[in-house]
């Protein structure tokens, strides 16, 4: 394969951003704002699925999800399932969503995160019979609102990594 870009590509950058998102996920926060924090890993994975849709592999999404499950000592497979589904949908929508203005992208992201929450609630309902997961809807809204920031930050990292499509 002949690379059109002569500059070197840093394909480790997406992995690094997922790692940073994992760290942010478990970083200690005051109890008051803890319920409002979005799932950073989902946001990062959705970004890469939108921006480099053909390169983004479902296996990376699945492994990231499994990493989340193991890091938060949850039920292994739950986040793996939801992250794979999110990335699949984002890849599917990428051509359309990339053309949207940022605020419209935010709406799509909110819907995607909401879908993930519903998935968690279903697993929780089957596994433990409770619906307590649905209390986290605030994180979904904040996730949508935080999207422009996440987008800008990750776009810089993508330009640094010299990755496209």
């Amino acid at each position: 394969m002949i690379s059109v870009n002569s500059a070197q590509q840093h394909s480790w950058v997406p992995f690094a951003t997922v790692f940073i998102a994992l760290v942010l996920l478990v970083i200690p926060a005051p109890e008051l704002i803890r319920g409002f924090l979005p799932d950073w890993v989902s946001l990062v994975l959705i970004y890469w699925a939108l921006a480099v849709s053909t390169r983004m592999r479902l296996s990376l999404a699945w492994l990231s999800g499994l990493a989340v499950d193991l890091v938060i000592l949850g039920i292994p497979g739950v986040h793996a399932l939801s992250k794979t589904l999110l990335v699949y949908l984002a890849k599917h929508l990428s051509l359309r969503v990339r053309a949207y203005p940022l605020w419209q992208q935010s709406v799509v992201i909110t819907l995607l995160l909401g879908l993930e929450l519903i998935l968690f609630a279903v697993v929780d309902l089957v596994a433990t019979g409770s619906l307590s997961e649905l209390h986290r809807w605030t994180g979904v809204i904040v996730g949508g609102l935080a999207w422009p920031l996440v987008y800008q930050a990750l776009r810089r990292s993508r330009h640094f990594a010299n990755l496209s499509r």
Partner: peptide, 24 residues
């Protein structure tokens, strides 16, 4: 991007099955 139902079965299916199997 043209993705048929085949794409879902081949692309997404194994991961979903694997996750559900793991949870179970």
């Amino acid at each position: 991007m043209v993705k048929s139902r085949d794409g879902v079965v081949r692309g997404l299916g194994p991961y979903l099955l694997l996750s559900v199997a793991l949870i179970t």
